[in-house]
């Protein structure tokens, strides 16, 4: 398969009072044409920063791509001029966000917010723009599209607003859609509908999707491949089925154990991974997961494990083999 997006050694940092801190530290991955890739990880692990780096939106939020490259259709987005990058945003790469409640501007109509994208990237006539906007609303399953165009965001439900966001994102038929936790703020039924919508649209429009979620259950449902992130690093990358059948990283294993076994079981107390993400200012020198890992050894604490191929997919763990074979019992420390 041909990669559409190839991120190499990306380092993104934020300027804070304590200086530049790295929120994403040297990650590499690719998204192939027509593929749905999920980035999974706890909140704070750098998923949003990764997506905002691809969109080069970190520039506007005190952030900065410090190193690395982002290849997309013969261009390196990391070093593209602002104007060239602007013309890619919303046309070749679109993005939808977690907060459908606040992601739409409250003082403009839905119609204006869909149609203005054409003004940025296409030279449609007013009539053509309106016609296309109605088409898009129909595509994302919104009834009475003509009336909706005149409505304001506060007149729609959360699920509707997310559909509108998707309609906006699809306006210029992007090659890549980045969805950052698109269903996190929605309830389970609406979540299922939106995920279903994304699946259908992907097939119809032949685009790639980079879906970001903290919920590995969501990832399992829609993705072809999963990237697991922890504390600004990628710790495991595998085709979805393989990730579940041949888990190589203790963190991934922890995530899988905290997933409800049956659908609709949400809200039930689940075993979650003990401990919290290391602070951005106190990163362990060795494996970043070591403080929470039941498999850790002295080597883990001293030396950072590289992201390497074991048994056909990538994992960053010194003890991938034991994790896979289950030879080292969980809870046993050496």
């Amino acid at each position: 398969m041909e990669p559409l997006l190839k991120v190499e050694n990306l380092v993104t940092g934020y300027r804070t009072e304590q200086g530049l801190v790295k929120a994403v530290d040297n990650i590499s991955f690719e998204v192939n044409k027509g593929e749905t890739v999920c980035i999974v990880g706890e909140s704070g692990s750098g998923k949003s920063v990764t997506s905002l780096s691809i969109m080069r939106l970190v520039d506007f939020e005190n952030g900065e791509i410090i190193d690395g490259s982002i290849h997309f259709q013969d261009k390196d987005l990391a070093s593209l001029s602002n104007e060239d990058m602007r013309s890619i945003r919303g046309s070749k790469i679109s993005m939808i966000f977690q907060e459908p409640m606040t992601a739409l501007n409250p003082v403009f109509t839905i119609g204006k917010q869909i149609m203005e994208t054409f003004y940025f990237h296409r030279s449609y006539s007013g009539k053509k723009a309106k016609q296309r906007a109605i088409e898009l609303l129909e595509l994302v399953g919104i009834n009475q599209p003509e009336e909706r165009l005149k409505q304001y965001p506060h007149e729609l439900s959360g699920g509707m607003r997310q559909r509108v966001m998707i309609a906006i994102a699809l306006g210029c038929e992007p090659d890549l859609l980045i969805a950052d936790e698109p269903t996190t703020a929605l309830d389970v039924t609406i979540e299922a509908q939106i995920l279903e919508l994304l699946k259908t649209i992907k097939q119809e429009m032949e685009m790639s999707i980079l879906l970001i979620t903290h919920d590995i259950g969501v990832a399992a449902e829609v993705s072809d491949r999963i990237i697991v992130m922890y504390a600004g690093k990628i710790v495991e990358v595998a085709p979805t089925i393989e990730l579940f059948s041949q888990t190589l990283h203790p963190y991934t294993k922890g995530l899988l154990e905290s997933v409800p076994k049956m659908s609709g079981e949400r809200g039930v107390e689940l075993p979650s991974i003990e401990g919290t993400l290391p602070g951005i200012h106190s990163m362990p020198i060795g494996c970043r997961f070591a403080p929470r890992c039941h498999y850790k050894t002295e080597k883990c604490v001293q030396v950072e494990p590289p992201l390497e191929n074991h048994y056909g997919h990538l994992a960053a763990c010194w003890h991938a083999e034991e994790v896979r074979n289950g030879t080292l019992e969980k809870g046993e420390t050496t």
């Binding site: 969109m55 939106l57 506007f60 939020e61 602007r86 013309s87 890619i88 945003r89 919303g90 046309s91 679109s94 993005m95 966000f97 907060e99 606040t102 992601a103 739409l104 501007n105 409250p106 003082v107 403009f108 203005e116 994208t117 940025f120 990237h121 966001m165 906006i168």
Partner: peptide, 26 residues
Amino acid sequence: NQNYIRTVRAKGAKERYVIYVHALKN
């Protein structure tokens, strides 16, 4: 700093448009 401003940028708006149309009206 509102989310909808990030959305407008993600849609490919010019910075001038972001400020004088979307931000200003709010």
